Every structure is written in C-alpha cells, then in structure tokens.
Amino acid sequence: LELTLRVGDKTWHFKDVDEEFVRHLEELLKRGAHEREIEEIIREWLR
C-alpha cells in the first residue's frame, strides 16, 4: 500500500505501508486525534 497523509501543514508519503498501521491511523482519525498524537505515531512507525 502507498499512503499520503496530510496533517496540519505537514505531508507524508509512505510506500509499502503495513495495513495494520493504516487501520491504526484510521482509528486515531475517527476519534479525533490531535495533530501531535498523529505525528508521534508516525515517528514511532518510522523507527
């Protein structure tokens, strides 16, 4: 999967994204996660 995600003024483009990561992001967005929380999840995933 490829994913382009825009949060606030930042845009990330990922290739070979894990479906579990996408589901986790979807859940965060559904519950109205704040920009900082989403950025933290992305940084963790990139490690």
Rank of each mutant, 00 (worst) to 15 (best):
L46E: 14
V17Y: 06
E19F: 15
D9C: 04
L29H: 05
E37K: 07
L3Q: 02
T4N: 06
K15R: 13
I42H: 08
R6L: 14
D9V: 03
L29A: 10
K30A: 12
W12P: 00
L3F: 12
G8I: 01
E40Y: 08
V7D: 01
E35I: 12
E19A: 15
L46D: 08
H13M: 05
H13V: 14
I41M: 14
I38E: 01
R31H: 11
R47N: 13
L5V: 15
E37D: 11
L25W: 02
E2K: 06
W12K: 00
K10L: 07
I42K: 00
R47A: 15
E39Q: 07
L25S: 01
H34T: 15
R36L: 13
E40F: 09
R47V: 14
T11V: 15
R6G: 07
R31V: 11
E39Y: 06
F21P: 01
D9E: 09
E20Y: 12
I41E: 13
F21N: 02
I42Q: 01
E2Q: 08
K15D: 07
E26H: 10
H34Q: 14
L25P: 00
V7C: 06
R23D: 05
I38W: 03
G32S: 05
D18I: 02
A33K: 08
V17N: 08
D9G: 08
L29Q: 10
H13Y: 15
K30C: 07
W12D: 00
R43K: 13
R31G: 12
V17I: 10
E39V: 08
T11R: 02
E20N: 14
E37R: 05
L3I: 14
L25K: 00
T11Y: 09
G8Y: 02
L29Y: 07
G32E: 06
L3M: 06
F14Q: 00
L3G: 01
F21S: 05
H34V: 08
E27T: 11
G8W: 02
L5W: 02
F21R: 03
R36T: 13
D9S: 07
H24M: 12
E35T: 10
K15W: 08
F14I: 07
R47Q: 14
E40G: 10
R36Y: 14
V17A: 13
I41P: 00
H24I: 12
L5I: 15
R43Y: 15
V22Y: 07
F21Q: 05
F14W: 01
E19P: 11
G8M: 03
E37Q: 09
E44N: 08
D9R: 03
F14D: 00
G32W: 03
D16T: 13
W45F: 12
I41A: 13
E39W: 05
L3W: 04
H24T: 13
T11P: 00
V22D: 01
L28R: 09
I42W: 11
H13D: 02
E40V: 09
E37L: 05
H34G: 13
R23H: 10
F14M: 04
H34K: 13
R36N: 14
K15A: 06
E44K: 07
V22T: 03
K10E: 06
G32Y: 04
V17P: 07
I42L: 06
V7F: 06
R36E: 14
E27I: 08
T11A: 04
K10T: 14
V7K: 01
L28S: 07
W12N: 00
L5R: 00
E37W: 06
E40W: 08
E27H: 10
E26D: 08
E39H: 06
F21G: 02
V7S: 02
T11C: 07
D18H: 11
L28E: 07
W12R: 00
K30I: 10
E27K: 10
I42F: 08
R23E: 07
H24K: 12
A33V: 13
K30S: 13
D16E: 08
K15G: 03
E19Y: 14
H24A: 09
H24Q: 12
E20T: 12
L28K: 11
V22L: 04
D16N: 14
H24P: 01
L1E: 13
E35R: 05
E2C: 05
D16W: 14
V22C: 02
R43T: 13
E35H: 12
V22H: 04
D16I: 12
E19L: 15
E37H: 08
K10A: 07
V17L: 04
G32T: 03
E44V: 07
I42P: 00
K30N: 10
I38Q: 02
R6Q: 15
E35G: 06
T4D: 06
D16Q: 13
L1D: 12
R6I: 15
E2M: 05
W12M: 03
I41Q: 08
I38H: 01
E2H: 09
E19M: 12
E40R: 12
T11W: 08
K15Q: 09
L29F: 08
E20I: 12
F21W: 08
W45C: 01
H13K: 08
E19K: 15
E39F: 06
E39R: 04
E39I: 07
F14L: 14
L25N: 00
E39T: 10
G32M: 03
D18L: 01
E37P: 02
E27F: 08
E44T: 03
E27V: 09
H34N: 14
E35D: 11
L29M: 15
V7T: 03
R47D: 12
F14H: 00
T11N: 04
L29P: 01
F14Y: 01
V7P: 00
F21I: 04
I42D: 00
V22Q: 02
R6E: 14
E40P: 03
R47L: 13
E27M: 10
E44H: 05
H34S: 14
A33S: 08
E35C: 03
L29W: 05
E35N: 09
G32A: 05
F14N: 00
E44M: 06
G32N: 06
A33M: 11
E37M: 06
L3H: 06
E19G: 11
K10F: 10
L25C: 10
L25Y: 02
R31M: 13
E35P: 13
L3A: 04
E2P: 02
E20D: 14
L3K: 03
W45S: 04
R6T: 15
K30T: 13
E39D: 10
K30E: 12
D18W: 02
F14G: 00
D18Q: 07
L46H: 07
D18K: 06
G8K: 02
R47F: 11
E20Q: 13
H34Y: 07
I42T: 01
F14R: 00
R43W: 13
H24N: 11
E39M: 08
E27Q: 11
W12L: 03
L25Q: 00
E44C: 07
E26G: 09
E39K: 04
R6C: 02
E35S: 08
E2F: 06
F14P: 00
F21K: 05
E35K: 06
W45G: 02
K15I: 06
R36W: 13
T11F: 08
R36K: 14
L46S: 04
E19W: 15
E26F: 08
E27L: 09
V17C: 04
I42C: 00
I41L: 11
K15H: 09
A33R: 07
E35Y: 11
A33G: 08
I38L: 07
A33N: 07
I41G: 04
V17H: 11
T4H: 09
K15Y: 09
E44S: 05
E44Q: 09
L29N: 04
E27R: 09
R23F: 08
D18G: 03
G8A: 04
V17D: 12
W12V: 02
E37I: 07
E19N: 08
E44I: 05
D16C: 02
W12E: 00
E20R: 11
W12T: 00
F21L: 04
W45A: 06
L28C: 03
K30Q: 11
K10H: 13
W45N: 03
W12H: 02
W12A: 00
K10Q: 09
L5P: 00
D16R: 13
R43M: 14
F21D: 04
R23I: 09
A33W: 12
D9N: 10
K10N: 10
E39G: 05
D9A: 05
A33Q: 09
E37S: 04
V7Y: 07
E19Q: 14
I38C: 02
V22I: 07
A33D: 06
L46K: 05
R36D: 15
T11L: 12
D16P: 13
L25M: 09
T11G: 01
E35W: 11
T4Y: 09
H34L: 10
K30H: 13
L28I: 07
K15P: 05
K10I: 11
R47K: 14
L46Q: 09
E19I: 15
I42M: 03
L25G: 01
T4E: 12
R23G: 08
V7R: 01
L46G: 03
F21C: 01
E27W: 08
T4K: 07
R36C: 06
E2R: 05
R47G: 13
K10R: 09
V22S: 02
W12S: 00
L46C: 10
D16S: 14
F21Y: 02
E26C: 05
L1K: 14
V17W: 04
F21T: 04
I38D: 01
L1W: 13
F14C: 01
L5C: 03
G32Q: 05
I41Y: 15
W12Q: 00
R31P: 02
R43D: 11
L1H: 15
E26T: 09
E26I: 11
I41W: 13
L25T: 02
H24E: 13
W12Y: 15
K30F: 12
L28Y: 05
K15E: 06
L25D: 00
E20C: 04
I42Y: 10
V22G: 02
E20G: 15
V7M: 05
W45D: 01
E44Y: 05
E40N: 10
K30P: 01
L1M: 11
T4L: 09
L46P: 03
K10G: 03
R47S: 13
H24R: 11
E26R: 11
E20S: 13
H34A: 13
R43I: 13
D9F: 03
D9L: 04
D18E: 10
